[in-house]
């Protein structure tokens, strides 16, 4: 079949660049492995009409210890759902399939309950997740008490650039940037090994956003695996080791952060390159058309309608994610 025939050049490429590949494909034993993750919702339309809305239609990515991986997608593309799927927090009307593994074993049921809030931590999107009646210090410590915990708290706060007085402040007295750092501190103090940070910087000015991102980078440098979900590719590139790009609910490319350079020659997917060239600093070039809903592109390449290189096969079948030039790409004709 067409897809199989096209796999051959990918394998050749993988033999050519085997060494750089390991770097871009993640560490040997990743902390988090997501394969073929799909999430759909049952929604009520008018009256009693029910319809299924596909939100994520195939996401593959991995995060190693000490690594910061950014998943970049436009708002409403299902990034928060991915975070909630990993943490087992999807609402009742959501259905998910695919595999999520943590430290080599499936992450579900009792294991998830045991690890969540300890080894697995979510830094949520809104600072409204902070308890308004709890001082920042208590909040970050969770159930930990005693002088040892206090001194750890002081150390963690100072590592993330929070002043000592911040320990005694209530959430409404914190700036947006400080509140995010308190959330990150809570993850660090809880002994998290894997942190999922959901859109930590929207609406913050450049300096504050950089601080919040730096706190995540610190976590990764301390040995944590960090998955950063954001719509802001520039922000992601400041701190990420690798970047996964989401389009119409699918991961379409997995690239090293350093691949985003120049005119995007090292990027693999035409969408990623278009996204890079659309940045205000890189040409501000728009692209006609809009992202389709995942169900509209169930049997074709989701990007085919907007792609300058689309061939008939791109409209007839869905390309699989495959290894290509030290990264991964979901495209029949990658560059």
């Amino acid at each position: 079949m067409a897809i199989g025939a096209k796999r051959v050049p990918a394998q050749e490429a993988s033999r050519r660049g085997a060494s750089s590949e390991e770097a871009a494909l993640g560490a040997a034993a990743p902390l988090l492995e997501i394969e073929g993750l799909r999430v759909s919702f049952l929604q009520y339309g008018r009256g009693l009409q029910r319809r299924t809305v596909q939100a994520l239609a195939g996401v593959d990515l991995s995060v190693g210890a000490g690594e910061l991986v950014a998943l970049v997608g436009s708002s409403g593309s299902g990034k928060s759902l991915l975070a909630h799927a990993v943490m087992g927090l999807l609402p009742d009307n959501a259905r998910s399939s695919g595999s999520i593994r943590y430290a080599g074993e499936p992450l579900d049921g009792e294991r998830l309950l045991r690890l969540r809030g300890k080894e697995l931590a979510l830094v949520p999107q809104g600072v409204t997740y902070l308890d308004p009646l709890l001082r920042a210090g208590e909040q970050a410590l969770g159930r930990q008490r005693g002088p040892q915990a206090r001194s750890r708290l002081r150390a963690v706060f100072s590592r993330f650039g929070l002043p000592e007085r911040a320990e005694r402040l209530y959430p409404h007295q914190l700036s947006g940037g400080m509140a995010r750092k308190v959330l990150v501190s809570a993850a660090a103090l809880g002994g998290a090994r894997l942190v999922v940070a959901d859109e930590p910087t929207p609406g913050m000015e450049a300096g504050k956003a950089a601080e919040a991102l730096q706190a995540l980078r610190e976590l990764a440098d301390g040995g944590c695996g960090v998955l950063l979900l954001t719509h802001d590719i520039e922000a992601a590139l400041r701190v990420a080791d690798r970047v996964a790009v989401l389009y119409a609910g699918e991961a379409v490319e997995l690239a090293a952060a350093s691949d985003f350079a120049g005119a995007g020659e090292r990027l693999r997917h035409p969408y990623t390159r278009a996204l890079w060239q659309a940045l205000p600093a890189n040409g501000f070039r728009p692209l006609p058309g809009v992202q389709p809903a995942p169900e509209e592109a169930a049997a074709s390449c989701a990007f085919a309608a907007r792609c300058g290189q689309a061939a008939p096969e791109c409209r007839a079948a869905k390309p699989a994610m495959r290894v290509w030039r030290g990264g991964q790409v979901r495209c029949f004709k990658p560059d």
Binding site: S75, H231, A274, W276, A278, P280, F284, P286, L287, P288
Partner: peptide, 17 residues
């Protein structure tokens, strides 16, 4: 007022142009 802050770079460029 932050007219395209929540949009991806491609959509932002199209709308501003």
């Amino acid at each position: 007022d932050e007219m395209t802050a929540m949009l991806d770079a491609l959509t932002q460029a199209g709308i501003w142009r």
